[in-house]
């Protein structure tokens, strides 16, 4: 097990170094030659890779929590419609003030929390009914989003689609806030890890073993939704990290949450750092929306996992 943790940390360090070096121009961080390179490294790439790391980690944590909360390994952070409501909020922001990324982010944040309030209304339902309610809410928000996109002026469409496919280039949340959220979310998750492990046995068993399941579900729903809202606000909707990473980490580190949560927080960050590095360089100087790359990496990985499990 120590070997696997060491491998994860080594891969993380190597990925961070690679992400710092790679771009339109290759820069060796250990031999920076001029102030321009220094500016690119430390003012552009470094904050962006930290943003990618924090957002990826938050999405993976939220995915792990939603999977346990809903008792469904196919759950992911956007399963209850929070991404749809955040997207609707972001597009509303874009309609109100077209050129302000800040207003778009604010719209996404407000939209995400409106989505969460809807979800909280159904938190007393059992896992399956809550999942069903989430799917219906997601469909509702998709319809709202489609309506808003139909009304959006043509020049705003590209910006809206780029944001909806995940965009780390316009993040308005300071890196320090995102990293703090990553740490707080992980600590909160670890504090709940024993109760989460018991929830893996099903709600009845967890309750019989002393867990106040109703309270735990409410806390978990709020925590996972808040984390999703922060991640969506910072980088738009980035798929597959929240679905694939917790599964991958369970395969590598076992099912207990004292291992799955830190491994997911690191693994999710690592995957998004790599995907963002690729998104910045594949068609440089232009950029691909990072969500495309996480999907391209995520889909085969997930299908491989499914085949392996069966």
């Amino acid at each position: 097990m120590m070997l696997r943790w060491s491998a994860l940390f080594f891969t993380l360090c190597a990925s961070l170094l690679l992400a710092l070096s790679i771009g339109e121009q290759w820069i060796n961080p250990f031999s920076v030659t001029d102030s321009f390179e220094q500016m690119i490294l430390w003012d552009l790439r470094f904050p962006r890779l930290l943003t990618a790391f924090a957002v990826g980690g938050l999405l993976a944590l939220a995915g792990a929590w939603f999977q346990v909360l809903l008792g469904n390994p196919l759950a992911e952070p956007y399963v209850l419609g929070v991404a749809g409501s955040a997207s609707a909020g972001a597009v509303t922001g874009l309609m109100l003030i077209p050129d302000s990324a800040w207003v778009m982010s604010l719209g996404a944040f407000i939209g995400a929390w409106i989505g969460i309030l809807f979800v909280m209304f159904f938190s007393h339902l059992g896992s399956n009914r809550m999942l069903l309610a989430g799917v219906v809410l997601a469909a509702f928000w998709s319809a709202v989003l489609a309506l808003l996109l139909a009304l959006l002026p043509e020049q705003g469409l590209f910006r809206a689609f780029a944001w909806m496919m995940g965009d780390l280039s316009h993040s308005d949340i300071p890196v320090t806030v995102l990293l703090s959220a990553w740490v707080i979310a992980l600590v909160c998750g670890l504090m709940l890890s024993r109760a989460l492990d018991l929830l893996l046995l099903g709600e009845r068993h967890a309750e019989a073993l002393g867990v106040d399941v109703k309270k735990l579900r409410q806390r978990l729903l709020l925590l996972a939704s808040a984390v999703t809202a922060i991640a969506v606000t910072a980088a738009g909707t980035i798929g597959f990290i929240g679905l694939v990473i917790p599964h991958l980490m369970r395969l590598l580190f076992g099912s207990l949450h004292r291992a799955v949560l830190p491994a997911s927080a690191i693994g999710g960050g690592l995957l998004l750092v790599l995907a963002d590095s690729a998104a910045r360089t594949v068609i440089a100087p232009a950029e691909l929306p990072v969500g495309i790359l996480t999907a391209i990496i995520g889909v085969p990985v997930f299908l491989f996992l499914l085949l392996r499990r069966s």
Partner: peptide, 23 residues
């Protein structure tokens, strides 16, 4: 409380789910 009850009563009911790979 739920915790107190869990110390006094052990319940064996339906088999737990297996989706998450617990050994």
């Amino acid at each position: 409380s739920r915790h107190e009850l869990s110390r006094l009563i052990a319940w064996q009911g339906e088999l737990p789910p297996t989706e998450f790979g617990l050994t």
